[in-house]
Nucleic acid binder design. Structure first.
Length: 276
DNA sequence: CTAGGATCCTGTCAGC
DNA sequence: TGCTGACAGGATCCTA
């Protein structure tokens, strides 16, 4: 489910398709939709995707757990990303389709099996004023160890896994990349934030960068890795995961089995040997 | 104030 | 086969 790399993969894919295209209709009808306006750009705030239109109206999406965006151009080009399920390649709309945005050159489907995700048209200046955006912490590429250490200090009795999932601490990680980050940093998910050394804090930042960069390089969960070239369904996790989804399989560093537990209410995968 | 649990919703899978 | 419960790549609200 869509974390920063998946949303960024969608942003890049749609950027190549939607810029300059005119919004013609929206289903279900929406009073706030700027029909007749062209797309001027695509932005991202953490896991929030923004499509900007001429006339200073923006369309925001949050995919939450099972949201996905599928764009199909009239010339046959397809871009799909987000929750990797069969709707990537199914005839659309299907029963998970929540909205259809018809552009001059193709149709954009917003699908969401679990209905946690949302979209909204709103004035462009209102995007940055959304509470979610206001509270969002920095992404790991622009965060200093001192900055993260200060934030962790304010929650010193919380488990580090819970704080990595907190978008106000650092933006972009979800359950997969939190586990991957902790693995790369060699930090046990149940460590209390106040117990981490300066070096461990610094490794969490580089671990977050590296885990998400590895996924971005493979296209996140997108059409590209969902369907293999032979037509079978691919598992994009195999492209970069060290810990997530690998319970019982050998740790890639020490060979001992990866363990799955529950931390902060979320399934958590780690190596008990490498993450103390 | 904090930390942790419940919650929104649908589908899938393991176990009986 | 059919039922039941657990779980799922998120974020917010409620409670203690």
């Amino acid at each position: 489910m869509p974390e920063l790399p998946e949303v960024e993969t969608i942003r890049r894919g749609l950027e190549g398709q939607l810029i300059g295209q005119v919004l013609q209709t929206v289903e279900p009808a929406d009073q706030a939709a700027p029909l007749g306006a062209a797309v001027t750009g695509l932005r991202r705030f953490g896991k929030l995707l923004v499509i900007d239109f001429a006339g200073d109206i923006s369309l925001i999406f949050h995919l939450k757990m099972t949201g996905q965006l599928v764009y199909r151009a009239t010339d046959g080009t397809a871009v799909a990303g987000g929750h990797p399920n069969s709707s990537f390649v199914a005839a659309l709309p299907d029963k998970t389709t929540r909205a259809v945005f018809v552009f001059s050159g193709g149709r954009l489907f917003f699908n969401d099996q679990r209905k946690f995700g949302f979209y909204q048209f709103l004035p462009r200046r209102a995007v940055e004023e959304l509470p979610f955006v206001q509270k969002l912490g920095p992404e790991p590429w622009v965060m200093t160890p001192a900055e993260l250490a200060a934030k962790l200090h304010a929650h010193s009795r919380s488990k580090i896994k819970a704080l990595l999932l907190d978008q106000t601490i650092m933006a972009g990680l979800g359950n997969i990349y939190a586990d991957e980050t902790l693995f790369l940093a060699g930090v046990h998910p149940e460590r209390l934030a106040g117990s981490l050394s300066q070096d461990e804090v610094a490794r969490l930042i580089t671990g977050a960068q590296q885990s998400m960069e590895a996924s971005l390089a493979s296209g996140g969960s997108s059409l590209r890795n969902y369907r293999r070239t032979d037509g079978s369904y691919g598992d994009y996790l195999t492209l970069f995961a060290n810990a997530y989804g690998r319970a019982g399989q050998p740790c890639k560093k020490c060979g001992r089995p990866i363990v799955k537990t529950k931390v902060a209410g979320r399934g958590t995968h780690f190596c008990p040997e490498c993450q103390q």
